[in-house]
Every structure is written in structure tokens, then in C-alpha cells.
Write a protein that binds this DNA or RNA. Structure first.
Lengths: 237, 237
DNA sequence: CGCGCCAATAAGTATAGACATATTTTCATC
DNA sequence: GATGAAAATATGTCTATACTTATTGGCGCG
């Protein structure tokens, strides 16, 4: 009735526990593979699998000839899941709609290096819209899309899915950069989100690339006290 | 002169490229291990290593008897690295100091369920301080520590390292939850950070546990337009 | 037709051995 | 003593094989 997990997982877990508990502090040399083989009475490949997994997770550092060592502690590096807004709203059990406010096709501004890089010589699709949750404005979205990277988007209607979901389905990203900050609501933001002017808003500024080609840049603005980004990091069980 | 990477990495890379490019869309059945063995002329273990790695990364889903399938697209799930403030400041090449403003040992407030849970019957260390970068206030920190989980902290001086770094070295965490939002600077925040009242500030609210025991809760408040959290996600090379 | 059992299949775990590669230690030579 | 070549060693990669486990698809039975 042991219902035992695979051995390599058990080895990994045993070591991880000792690291997390502080029993093996950073810099401590964890036992050699040969020692662990003897301790658990198994083959080296099994031990190796456990150790590789720990190394992948950043818990240990492995050095040939020297051994494996508990990695220096890294301050919180939680995985922050920035979900798409539609899913987030639906997950709260609220009705979701996206209202397109404006849609223009234009050239990149000549004095804006970011826009020049995004357009890559082509034109830009300039979108603005509001995500509503339960009939009330929840997020303002300003998006620029490179028509060179996503030509089909010029004709897309965003009635079924918002631009973010459309891109996700049609142009898979390979690289993304998100920047999270806070701003005071300017007149337009406060009007669109029905907030008092000056209210603190959370801003997610995200650029995505596909194999080196810049695809889109989006600014999403949320009422800061109503919406929070949440990241959780811990053992999976 | 091939200087070739390990075969399992090459296999992994080949598959990943086809997934990211959209050639193999979500739901597509990736070739069986036996097929890949034949294609690359290698052993199953080698293919298996590549596939496990892809599964770990969430790019494919593996099902016994059925095969391995490209995972449904996940909206941006960038890894957001929330570094400790000291490192972040030093990385910018600026001088760093931490000024402790107040330090009290007190009981948990009776009407505050969060504080009750944190204290776990013991007492709380209540800290407030400011992180300075280049001699100017950079972040306001309000921290509660469970003295049951970290009794030694009652006597620690935070001249060498700020409380976060102290905890990191002395009480390794196993679980953390971060919540990121925006608030308008109240009078105390604006005074401590030398900002106009009402300025939008980025707030990181983090709780950490150690094997189920709640250790600390910290509120870090940054000038929202000056400091941004940045997350980058893409191929490693 | 539906139900449950069974066989086929693909992934999951593990072994024992071989050779490659990086790094440290040792030691001979200058 | 400094220097660099060689040996020792721990991890890294890979193979060939064997058995286990979960799932699925088919077959026979009521």
C-alpha cells in the first residue's frame, strides 16, 4: 500500500525538502550521484534525472568534476500569470463584452522610434477599445498592430473575440515583454473607465514578437484599486 | 565543425520551432516517440528526454496510449521576476541604503484576520522603512513578521541588509503570493517618498510561507511612473 | 444496442554500461 | 617557485533493453 511515487521524484523531493528547510544552505555540496546511488540503491540515470530536474528549477547548480551545490537564494521569482482579460472576467462569473472605440490604419509616427520598429516599413493598425465586465468598464486597451506581421487583422471584426484573443489564435507569439506600472488617470482614461480624474491606475504595457518580428504593442489600463495582478508560487502538490 | 548541441536539445528545439511558428497548431499530434526515434536515428530515451522537457515547459500535453499533443495556447504567462530591491538598485549602478523608520513588537489586531493568521498565537514584529536609491527615497516598505516563525529577527539590526534580505538568508520560503496593484499616495506615502499627494504608486503586497507556516507579509510602495516591473519571456539562447 | 472485459499501444520508469566533456588536482619540468 | 601537461573525477549524453501503467479501441456477451 505504499502507492509510491516514482523513485526519481522521491529523490528530488527529499533533496528539495532539505534545501527549503535550510538544512542544506546555499553553497552546500549535495551528495555526489554515486553517493545517492548507494543511498537509494538505484542506477545513476535515476539519480541524474532527479538532479537535472532540481537544476532546471534553479535549486542547485551543477559543475563537472566539482559536484552539485545548493544555488544561492533568489529573491521571489514567482510566475506571474497575466491572463487575457476575457478569461479573467468570465472566471469571475461576470458577463464580458469588448467595445471597439476606434480603428485606424496609419503610418508610424516619424518621431517615434518604437512605432517605426513595430511597423517595419509597413503600416499600423491602431485600435482603441474598452473591456466591460458585468456591464461596467473594466479596462481600457490601446493597441498597435503591425500589418506586415498580421495583414489579416485589418479586416477582422472584434465582436466574437477581442483583439488580444484574435492575435493569439492567428499569430502565435514567441517572445513577449511586459512592463507594469502605475499612472494617474488622465481625462480620457477617467472618462472611458468612469473614474475620478487622477485615480491611480495599473498599466500593463506589453510588446510581443514572433521570431524576431515585432507584432504588437498594447497598453491595458485598469482601475488600480479594483483590479490586481496576482502571482502565486509554491509547491505543486 | 558542427559544434553540435546535444541531440535531445536539438530534437526539443526542432519541435518547439514548429509549434511556435504555428506549423503545428494546438491540438496537433506530435509524432510518436517511435517515429522520432526513426527520424533522428536515436534511442527512445533520447527522444523521451526532449519530449519530457517540452511537457515540463507546458508546450505539449502527453497522454499514454494516445500520444503527445500541442498544448492549447496560453495567453501571455511571462515569468515576472520580482527582484529584491537592494539588488535592483545596485544593478542600476546606484548607491543603496535602507532606513528603518519604526520597529515595534505587538500582538495581532483582534479584528484583523490576516494578522491573526500571521501571528499564529505569537507576537508580530512590525517594521517600517524606506529604501533609498542614489540618496533619494525609492520605495516605502511596511512589513509584519511572525516572531513565532522568525524569533531571531527581533534582535536583528538592519544596517547590513534590509529585512527582506535578512529573511531570505535566515528563513527560506517555500510559498509566496504577490499581489500587484496601484494606489494614490496618501499623506504618509507622499511624505516618505517625497511625492505630491495623490500620485499613482505601484504596490506589491507579498505574503510568504514556509512549509505552511505564514512567515511575513510585506507591502512595498513605489512611485508608479519611476519604477516599473518588467517581465520578459522568450527563447533563452 | 449497450455494457464490460481484454488486448494493443504509447508513454513512464528504471537499469547497466559506454563514452564525452569540463574542471580540478597532481606532478614533472623549467 | 612558476608553469603547463597529464591524470583523476563528477557530471553530461546516449544506447539498448525491460518492465509498468494508463488509456483506448475492439470484441463478445447479455
Amino acid at each position: 500500500m505504499t502507492a509510491s511515487r516514482p523513485l526519481h521524484q522521491r529523490i528530488r523531493g527529499d533533496i528539495e525538502t532539505r534545501i527549503r528547510s535550510g538544512e542544506w544552505p546555499p553553497g552546500y555540496r549535495v551528495p555526489f550521484e554515486t553517493e545517492l546511488m548507494a543511498e537509494y540503491g538505484c542506477a545513476r540515470m535515476t539519480v541524474s534525472k532527479a538532479m537535472s530536474s532540481l537544476a532546471d528549477a534553479g535549486l542547485i547548480v551543477r559543475r563537472k568534476r566539482a559536484g552539485s551545490f545548493v544555488a544561492p537564494p533568489k529573491m521571489h521569482a514567482p510566475v506571474l500569470n497575466i491572463p487575457d482579460i476575457q478569461s479573467a472576467v468570465l472566471a469571475r462569473g461576470e458577463a464580458y463584452t469588448f467595445r471597439l472605440l476606434s480603428r485606424r490604419i496609419r503610418a508610424a509616427r516619424r518621431n517615434d522610434a518604437d512605432e517605426q520598429a513595430l511597423a517595419a516599413g509597413g503600416r499600423l493598425l491602431d485600435l482603441e477599445g474598452v473591456h466591460d465586465a458585468a456591464g461596467r468598464p473594466f479596462a481600457l486597451e490601446r493597441r498597435l498592430v503591425s500589418l506586415k506581421a498580421a495583414p489579416d487583422m485589418a479586416n477582422a471584426a472584434f465582436t466574437e473575440r477581442p483583439p488580444g484573443a484574435w492575435l493569439l489564435e492567428n499569430v502565435a507569439w514567441t517572445e513577449a515583454e511586459s512592463r507594469i506600472g502605475a499612472v494617474n488617470a488622465d481625462p480620457e482614461i477617467s472618462r472611458r473607465l468612469a473614474l475620478d480624474p487622477g485615480t491611480a491606475c495599473l498599466v500593463v504595457d506589453r510588446k510581443t514578437w514572433r521570431t524576431g518580428e515585432h507584432v504588437t504593442r498594447v497598453l491595458q489600463i485598469f482601475p488600480g484599486e479594483v483590479f490586481n495582478l496576482v502571482a502565486r508560487f509554491g509547491p505543486d502538490p
